[in-house]
Design a binder for these strands. Structure first.
Lengths: 343, 343
DNA sequence: GATTGTAGATTAACCGGTTAAGTTCCCGAG
DNA sequence: CTCGGGAACTTAACCGGTTAATCTACAATC
């Protein structure tokens, strides 16, 4: 099978076929002006005839690029699978892939194994840009910075001036989400959240939650916050803890829709009706959230725009490397659906 | 910024530093025996000192590989985003990525634009293997075959002997799913499905549905089948058509969980309780299905194994190209949850 | 008729690795 | 003392593109 693996024609084969030099082929391929109409046609015919497809490896070697954009997303745990199963990540990846494809790039997706040399990937693959999604240890950013290639941070915070970033107003989002509950008369609100001290968006959303409470003159109380990882199961577990608490919660604000969805599941299994017994507000507005029963009231962010803007920043940065840090903050809004009750 | 872009050290720089030839560096890097302990150490020290990372482009050029596995998944529509938002696809991609990473490969994910030359990607990137997920036009398979690289089909059918494949028993799965409804006394069962004539898994599941009916002496009636695309919204729309039908349906069998989820949403919005008014069975057992209310009874398939086996087949085929077609059929089973009522 | 200019093509070096073939050098056997 | 053989390296060609520099006609200008 490998024996009869047909050797692909190279640019030299095409050159021979068209009776010109390899340089001419290359120029035709790259749309250089200084080739006569006639030669151009002859070259194109030869390319057609031989089914010639340029080798991007070879091209990359000489052009020092790869037409490859790296996308780094978190793993469920070290040395484990990607968090693609979290709809937030898959939605954004699909959006990045689209923008990349349209612009002639391909996507290389990967996680970051703890033991991996972070830089290595960027270097060995000569990536043209990287989109980082999610939070990582400081060391990660420091190393990546050395690569000197365009990098945009999404839902990832790093003070360094080097990185581009596209964010949403996480703090404000959590603020309006929480405020919505407060305005509907809820006073005992559980916060279901990721690990706050890890910083990033979680921390900001926590702050927004606190902002809303403060505005209503309520104290931020530790026994109202329930921390865990950010996935369905964790939502379930956090809900369990909420239910077992002595506090008469009437509502929960989750810093991510998947956590809200997991929590709803547990409340339901307890026989607690939503929103009658328990109101729930999420954050992200995943596709799936609309399909929950009841449909989840949540803080909307435009995940697709997040992805496409990230890609645009990379492209700009490739075109114009001198240009400084680009930063974009997208708006958020509350989508009222059926998971909140007026007290 | 690009001006001060540090030139990466090449193998020749390392050679100079260690006072040996480039070949020696290469041999050390690739663990060849015939290098003395002492030289080996000297080379390693030089590599350390210079922060040398080999360039996979260059290596690929001479080795004729890329350490890249392509993953092709469907798009929501031509020239559009990837179906990654369908949890089935994201779950399987995350599983493939993991197996790939563990084995020193990276994943390049892409859709297939209608106008794209399918072969091009494989050729120009010198992919080491491709995993095809979902159904595509015949032309697609024919072209891809020419690439002569290992290809495994997942949820993708093609008679050609050339392709490896990992499947589940789709027909049997649909059979047990439907049978479960029949055994619970349901006789008017709506089939919510993808486009049957497109073949592939949809067709097989359709057949399994028919098998079960036949076993119970029931005819397969056209007015019981509702076709649409496979996504949440379509499920909703199909449910609308079911509800508007004159037939007193008591149950629906969906050939995909996302369709079932969309349908449940619509039934709920009609005030139809599930399973009291309408029983629903899905197919796939997505992560999310467990979190629905009620939890979805569905035909389980091991999506993770599907992905990891696909990757294993590619690796085997790379190691041993002479070996013939590999085929694997994974088992399915029914997971009973709360969306089916006994009549 | 000599000079200059230019459109259209070619030459050859280069990108950064791999590897077959060749070179040294040293040791043990005949 | 000579020769064979293997261990440890080196040489140099090659992978398949790009591109600066160079060449060649041929037309225009003086």
């Amino acid at each position: 099978m490998s024996a009869d693996r047909l050797k692909r024609p190279t640019i030299r084969d095409v050159a021979k076929e068209a009776n010109v030099s390899v340089a001419t082929i290359s120029y035709v391929l790259n749309g250089k002006e200084s080739i006569s109409e006639e030669t151009r046609d002859r070259v194109k015919a030869a390319i057609q005839k031989l089914d010639y497809v340029p080798d991007l490896n070879a091209r990359g070697l000489s052009m020092k690029n790869s037409k490859l954009i790296g996308v780094v997303i978190p793993q469920t745990e070290p040395g484990s699978r990607l968090m693609l199963t979290n709809p937030f990540y898959s939605e954004i990846v699909s959006s990045i892939e689209y923008s990349a494809r349209v612009n002639g790039y391909h996507l290389l997706i990967t996680g970051t194994d703890a033991d991996a040399d972070y830089l290595k990937l960027a270097m060995e693959r000569k990536l043209d840009g990287i989109v980082i999604i999610g939070m990582y240890p400081d060391q990660f950013y420091n190393e990546l910075k050395k690569s000197r290639i365009p990098i945009v941070l999404v839902d990832s915070y790093c003070d360094d001036h080097y990185f581009h970033s596209v964010q949403i107003n996480d703090r404000y989002g959590a603020y309006i989400g929480t405020k919505h509950l407060l305005e509907n008369g809820h006073r005992e609100i559980a916060l279901l959240t990721g690990i706050i001290k890890e910083g990033g968006v979680i921390r900001k959303r926590y702050d927004g939650f606190a902002d809303a409470l403060r505005e209503f003159g309520l104290p931020m109380r530790d026994d109202h916050v329930f921390e865990g990882v950010v996935d369905f199961d964790s939502g379930l577990e956090l809900a369990r803890r909420v239910a077992k608490s002595r506090i008469p919660f009437t509502a929960a604000f989750a810093t991510a829709d998947i956590v809200a969805i997991g929590a709803m599941k547990h409340f339901h299994s307890l026989g607690w009706k939503i929103p009658e017994r328990m109101s729930v507000v999420g954050f992200d507005d995943l596709n799936i959230s609309r399909y929950m029963d009841p449909a989840l009231t949540t803080v909307h962010q435009d995940i697709y725009r997040k992805g496409s803007h990230a890609m645009e920043m990379i492209l700009r940065s490739i075109q114009n490397p001198e240009e400084g840090k680009q930063e974009l903050i997208l708006p958020v809004s509350l989508v009222e659906r059926d998971s909140v009750r007026r007290l």
